[in-house]
Design a protein around this nucleic acid. Structure first.
Lengths: 156, 156
DNA sequence: TTCCTATCGACAACTTAGTTGTCTAATTAT
DNA sequence: ATAATTAGACAACTAAGTTGTCGATAGGAA
């Protein structure tokens, strides 16, 4: 009996947490102390076309009401702006601000740095293999960056 | 440029979610439809000595008030019982009930089955290597089963 | 064109899982 | 003996979701 399934689950979660916690911490150290992972994901989705609350909700697999709340937070903090949609009077079109893009850029950079650290610890080929194997297990589609609604969902 | 750090984080999270979601679902199918991962972790901690709210809070890295709430839920659902501590009048001693142990046992079994499935997909040696590498990256101590308070914490 | 239906965003009330702060009672240390 | 610490209860709050309802806009079919 090598390891248990529970251990494996905790290892995976531990890896994720290690990356994300370090990223959030580093972002805070760089002055972005009010950004949470879900905000990054949301901005990414907005940037890639989910520019209204309903669509954002769909992409993130959360209700449009929850998406509207996230947008409200991002608005408050200056990471997105909102304007009328020129073609659809019902919609309010969201756009990522330069500040928002800056957070996205830095978050990405920090994560890439962390990945490079892991590459040094494990070896370049080895990490690539680990990623390839995880991709086999997890599949490619469930990890599309536009739909990580379950990121913050009932993990308890 | 192989993969990005963000992809890696999502792969790890995806792996965890895949295991845990399937486990919660299967537990529900077996009649335990009110158990959440955090309950399993809490019961495990109680069983391994964290038999009062304050200690449970410490082990799970949450406040004693939060731990007390978790205990209240577990009490309601019959997974633990509470009695007076014979040596310390301040404490209320918690114990896992047979029903609680049954959930723990089945949860463990389900996770082990899922891990076996992964073994078939990846190969026995390969999965063992993956686990070994994750252990290098994550470390052994942060994955102790008694302290996954961060399981349900600010993942958003 | 008018009407039916679907969608958008807003508002309200609720849930879950955490937080801090305050309080009393019991234990422990000086 | 007294002071400090600890356990647990209670209250109020936060964060990120949920469902349900609603008025306004859009769009397809009669």
């Amino acid at each position: 009996m090598s390891r248990s399934g529970a251990d494996l689950a905790l290892l995976l979660l531990g890896g994720y947490r290690k990356l994300i916690d370090a990223t959030v911490l580093e972002l805070a150290a760089r002055g972005f102390d009010d950004v949470r992972p879900v905000h990054e994901f949301a901005m990414r989705a907005v940037d890639s076309g989910a520019d209204n609350a309903s669509e954002l909700g769909r992409r993130m697999s959360i209700s449009k009401q929850a998406a509207a709340k996230t947008i409200a937070t991002l608005l408050e903090r200056g990471y997105v702006t909102r304007g009328a949609d020129p073609v659809d009077g019902r919609r309010k079109r969201i756009e990522v601000t330069p500040l928002g893009f800056e957070v996205m850029r830095q978050g990405e950079a920090i994560l890439n740095d962390l990945r490079t650290e892991w590459e040094l610890q494990l070896g370049r080929k080895e990490l690539a293999l680990l990623e390839a194997q995880l991709t086999i297990l997890v599949g490619d589609s469930p990890v599309r960056i536009e739909a990580p609604g379950w990121v913050a969902q009932d993990l308890g």
